[in-house]
């Protein structure tokens, strides 16, 4: 089905009965109230700071060194990842001279440590929380592994760890940051594409970068109102929200197999 038909059908659905109930979903107070659960003394983190990450996509070569570095550092089970680099093949169809020029686009993915984290507000036992320094954490001794946070995360950044049987996610390597070290993914990035720092400190490297590229900073799914704190430089709008692309082949079948 071509994209015109597809958008027409989508619009038809919304225009008919769907349109009558859309405003109800817009008025959901749970999407606007921010919950952090950081009252306990051991949930403060480094108060006064706000950690964030800039991913400079112009420098990412898709080598997956960050993926491996994270796996070694955080010992996620084989096949489960706190961070990974997604890869897409992109061609232009705008009639430009680069029509046949196939390019690879790489998109490092990790927890966005949102300012308005949807995972925190659904957790039924307050096992997941956001420290004062913005890092979203999981207390995996309290977690009942209901996977509600996995459902609520719009970025698929969370998973149920097959070994610990609790919710798991990127912590910005908080244990390393507290010791003055860089997160494993930042440390291993060969192109220097990942930059972490305190955005409350105007003199930090990340603050300089964000000022310098303020017109070219994008976040994933801005429409979700989650206010992500992983910022991308060199991102195309076609890849910020749900990707309209061809499917990756998980299970080759048919005549093209």
């Amino acid at each position: 089905m071509d994209s015109t038909k597809r958008s027409l059908m989508t619009r038809l659905g919304a225009l008919t009965v769907g349109a009558a109930i859309i405003p109800v979903s817009g008025a959901n107070p749970l999407t606007t109230t921010i919950i952090r659960n950081s009252e306990a003394p051991d949930r403060k983190g480094q108060s006064g700071k706000r950690y964030a990450m800039v991913v400079d996509l112009r420098k990412c070569v898709g080598c997956q060194a960050c993926t491996v570095g994270c796996s070694i550092e955080n010992q996620a089970p084989i096949g489960q990842f706190r961070t990974t680099v997604k890869q897409y093949e992109v061609t232009l169809d705008d009639g430009s001279s680069e029509l046949q020029n196939v390019k690879s686009f790489t998109l490092p993915r990790l927890c966005n440590h949102c300012e308005n984290p949807p995972c925190v507000k659904v957790c039924p036992v307050q096992a997941t929380f956001q420290r004062d320094d913005g890092i979203v954490m999981v207390d995996n001794e309290r977690c009942v592994a209901c996977a509600y946070c996995v459902q609520a995360c719009p970025y698929d950044a969370r998973f149920i760890n097959e070994e610990t049987l609790t919710a798991d996610k990127c912590t910005f390597c908080a244990h390393r940051l507290e010791e003055g070290l860089l997160p494993a993914c930042v440390e291993t990035c060969v192109g220097g594409a990942r930059i972490i720092g305190d955005i409350k400190d105007p003199n930090s490297h990340i603050s300089h970068l964000m000022r310098e590229h303020q017109d070219d900073i994008k976040v994933l799914k801005p429409e979700e109102n989650t206010q992500p704190h992983v910022f991308y430089i060199g991102m195309d709008d076609a890849l910020t929200s749900k990707i309209d692309g061809k499917v990756a082949i998980y299970d080759p079948a048919g005549e093209n197999a």
Binding site: E89, D93, S104, D156
Partner: peptide, 11 residues
């Protein structure tokens, strides 16, 4: 823009 997924970890 035509986008084809090459390496995507399924959730």
């Amino acid at each position: 823009m035509n986008i084809t997924e090459i390496l995507v970890q399924p959730q």
